[in-house]
Design a protein around this nucleic acid. Structure first.
Length: 306
RNA sequence: GCCGCGGUAGCUCAGGUAGUAGAGCACAGCUCUGAAAAAGCUGGGGUCGCCAGUGCAAGUCUGGCCCGCGGCA
């Protein structure tokens, strides 16, 4: 047996559930002299686990925490990439693990906070992704083929992977083929978890969540979210790129292109964010390790025990 | 009152020549091996406006009635 793994606390939950705010409150609490002494730590720092907040210039639409709201708590992995460039989960994983270790070296506790399940689990599970960068040129070529054609190609290259892959999901099929072309086969994924994780989930009823999403959306528009997208456009982002970001960026882009009206945009966006939150919940729901909490006190108690 | 057009899933609508109904959206559930706020999958739902007629068989043909929309008077 190796020495016990360092501790990592994760705050997760659907969008608009109040993760960022809770995280700051918890951090402030555990930064108090009393608790620092009690647990023999130097405090807490926050690492964002959000696949869109990593981009510079995407603030209102991603609900990125402001300097003021941070209340002096250091936040990592915000604004670490240009929206012009593709940022992927492997890059995130690397940076997040690096940040966590840096925090631990200061004898502080890292608090991973966010709602991007794929990103969160890449860190907690320590997935070892196939060591192969995306080949965008190849992808573009394969994109022209139909799903069934792609499936046939994959079946020839790697029958085993073909058995478990979704036969109509072109994006996944293309990635699998990409891997086969370079590595022969799609390797089975290995896990090397590096941290001892405490997973805390924020629980909200569907009705509650719907209201929170709606109110937050209107607030974002009032804060100038449309202007933010215009600025991104001005800085050289294509409509296609904005489309890729999804949700706010996708629908505002369509509105700015006059493909939909303002009221349509607001209505569709509201629905789309609700659907997104359901997808997040689907992902978390099957994870029995998550402790679902109702309030800050529950979280504090869990962390103290941990 | 007359003439047109329409009444099919919660919504918008497809359904030559009759053979017990489909699509998109919505809703519900799910997947996740370098785009993950991405990309996909599965499912529940309809006495086809009402009544009668013709046919072995009627959203589908015939007649009547009801409702909505447009036009004429």
């Amino acid at each position: 047996m190796s020495s016990p793994r360092p501790k990592l606390i994760i705050i997760l939950g659907p969008t608009a559930s109040g993760k960022s705010e809770l995280a700051v409150k918890l951090a402030l609490r555990f930064n108090s002299e009393q608790l620092k002494k009690k647990f023999g730590i130097n405090g807490v720092e926050i690492i964002s686990a959000d696949s869109r907040q990593v981009y510079k210039g995407m603030n209102i639409g991603t609900g990125k925490i402001t300097k003021k709201e941070m209340r002096g708590i250091p936040h990592h992995l915000l604004d670490v990439a240009s929206p012009k460039k593709k940022f992927t989960v492997v890059r995130y994983q690397k940076l997040a693990i690096k940040a966590a270790n840096k925090i631990l070296r200061k004898k502080k506790i890292p608090l991973l906070v966010g709602g991007s399940p794929f990103y969160i689990y890449s860190v907690t599970e320590g997935w070892l992704f196939p060591k192969l960068k995306p080949d965008w040129k190849l992808r573009k070529k394969l994109e022209k083929k139909s799903a069934s054609e792609l499936f046939k190609i994959l079946k020839k290259l790697d029958e085993k992977r073909a058995k478990t892959i979704e036969t109509k999901n072109k994006r996944r099929l293309i990635r699998a083929i990409e891997i086969c072309k370079k590595l022969g086969k799609v390797p089975q994924i290995k896990k090397t978890p590096q941290f001892d994780c405490l997973l805390i989930g924020i629980k909200k009823s569907p009705q509650e969540l719907k209201i929170l999403i709606n109110n937050r959306l209107l607030k974002r528009f009032n804060k100038g979210m449309v202007g933010e997208v215009k600025n991104l456009r001005k800085s050289g982002l294509s409509w296609k790129r904005l489309e890729e970001f999804g949700l706010e960026y996708r629908w505002i882009a369509r509105f700015l292109q006059k493909k939909i009206s303002y009221s349509e945009m607001v209505k569709i966006l509201q629905k789309d964010i609700e659907k997104f939150s359901k997808r997040q919940i689907t992902w978390f729901k099957s994870d029995k390790r998550i402790h679902w909490i109702k309030n800050q006190k529950d979280a504090e108690n869990l962390i103290k025990k941990f």
